[in-house]
Design a protein around this nucleic acid. Sequence first.
DNA 1: AAGGTAGGCAACCGCCACACG
DNA 2: TCGTGTGGCGGTTGCCTACCT
Length: 221
Amino acid sequence: MAPVTKDSINRRKVKGGEAMKNTKREVNKGAWTAEEDQKLAEVIEIHGAKRWKTIASKAGLNRCGKSCRLRWLNYLRPNIKRGNISEQEEDLIVRLHKLLGNRWSLIAGRLPGRTDNEIKNYWNSHLSKRMNQKEKQNGANLTRQMISIDHQKDRVQIKEDSSSEEGATSTSTTSAASKGGDQNSNINIDVDDFFDFSNEGPLNLEWVSKFLGQDDGRWFN
DNA sequence: AAGGTAGGCAACCGCCACACG
DNA sequence: TCGTGTGGCGGTTGCCTACCT
């Protein structure tokens, strides 16, 4: 299947933008036009990317603030990458998903220029199917590491989640270990430390491997 | 050639958390 | 403390294109 091209998307935008107007509430919905994009970008350049409701009104767009925010973050934002997800990025997505689950915003935070929406779409359309195939190949008994965050204690706990193909799931909790500690224990670490990426390169896989030590090879071939 | 189907992506929806008065 | 507004997030939908029969 050939990818949906940018041109085709833009053609769709114009057509859909007109067709999907919600006249009852006088709020535009559906695809964005190039004119709307330009207006939105101009207003954000002046006022900054905050107070989305104000931005929407200042731009003269019959859009809600949420729609403007989404459009900016997923499409118009500078330095945004679109398409052509590299093998390295793909590998990182898979590893992070194993660690974090469907926390797309957190995963996107590790991939500069990528949006949570793009990663979510990429996962749903590409990786999830391949993961399912891989899991079937590897047998019924799987071990998944699940992250849980204790907001009261500001701690992150990584649990091993053993599941079978029948869907039975049991979560075992063993004694806490220090960060990067015992291989057979759950890991209990500091939230700020865990999500502090300031000292790392954007695609540094070492910290992922620290938690997923059993996976030292690529996921897909 | 025409209709059906799957893939892919943008955008919307609903819920939740947080800030502020 | 409570109500309201706003932003953020994940799930889901809608629609177009390319491929298949």
